[in-house]
Design a protein around this nucleic acid. Structure first.
Ligand SMILES: [Mn+2]
Ligand SMILES: [Mn+2]
Ligand SMILES: [Zn+2]
Ligand SMILES: [Zn+2]
Lengths: 143, 143
DNA sequence: TCTGAATTGCAACTCAATCTCAATATCAGT
DNA sequence: ACTGATATTGAGATTGAGTTGCAATTCAGA
């Protein structure tokens, strides 16, 4: 599972799976859904497995590099992440009125992107598709 | 053209098209391609049409709201923009090795996104699709 | 020309994220 | 178990893009 993968990723770079890194990994994979670094840090601080803010940020970057975690959004107010291991890839719709996030997946969309990459002889590895607009509830509320 | 549109956008909000705002608008539409706020500011400072850094940022936000300019990317090192008026909408592939940006457009992709929005009863207005990977040149260089 | 609202530039401020660095932990070789 | 080389940590300092407060200035309309 995820700690094994992280372990291997780290040793391949001459790094160690310390208890602080383990804390971050654990916490992230216990969270259902999206999270930001500050809340992640606070939830770790308030648990029994401690890690400093610096270590949380450092580990988060390592996890992104390892592919276990993805950065979903970068906003003025900071970044939002989610763990991807164990989840099917998906993209996001974000309501600019209430902030709601809708997750969606389309095989067709993925295939199409692959084709477009081929056309441009581009070796795509990851992508982020973010559709902004208004959710159903906010559409009604505006009328 | 663009100044007319901006003009109308501003007056609709009780704002004025001042010479500082005009400077920013002019400079942006004289740039071919992507730009960041700091370079925009510097190029304005070094031209004959002056505007402070604060005004540049403030105007940039107004231009985004008006739809004449889009924010393409938000990175650690700051945001990147491009003007959209006069250009067909397109998305971006970004080479994580050399930073090259490839612009592309697919009618099919756009249609598909519309369909997906409908399925989720989401009123999409804008989207950002960013495909990361390696450009042709960097693929060769790595071998 | 008078008046109120909008605008400007500067500097102070915000705040997520990174960095510095001394203390500490880890591990391989002896 | 001792030793040196390397990796890691946490606390606080620092960075830097972007925002904001505010006094002076511009502007449009009466
Ligand atoms: Mn998600
Ligand atoms: Mn572009
Ligand atoms: Zn909403
Ligand atoms: Zn490249």
């Amino acid at each position: 599972m995820e700690s094994k993968i992280f372990q291997e990723f780290l040793s391949r770079r001459g790094l160690k799976l310390t208890k602080e890194r383990m804390s971050v990994l654990r916490q992230i994979f216990s969270i259902h859904g999206h999270f930001d670094p500050e809340h992640l840090y606070l939830s770790i601080r308030d648990s029994d497995m401690k890690a400093s803010r610096a270590s949380v940020y450092r580990t988060l970057n390592l996890l992104v590099e390892s592919g276990l975690v993805e950065r979903i959004t970068r906003s003025d107010k900071g970044n939002v992440y989610e763990h991807t291991y164990g989840h099917r890839h998906h993209d996001h719709m974000i309501c600019t009125a209430c902030g709601e996030v809708i997750e969606f997946f389309s095989e067709h969309l993925e295939d199409l992107q692959k084709m477009i990459c081929e056309q441009h002889q581009f070796a795509g590895t990851t992508h982020t598709l973010e559709i902004r607009g208004n959710c159903k509830a906010c559409q009604k509320r505006k009328k």
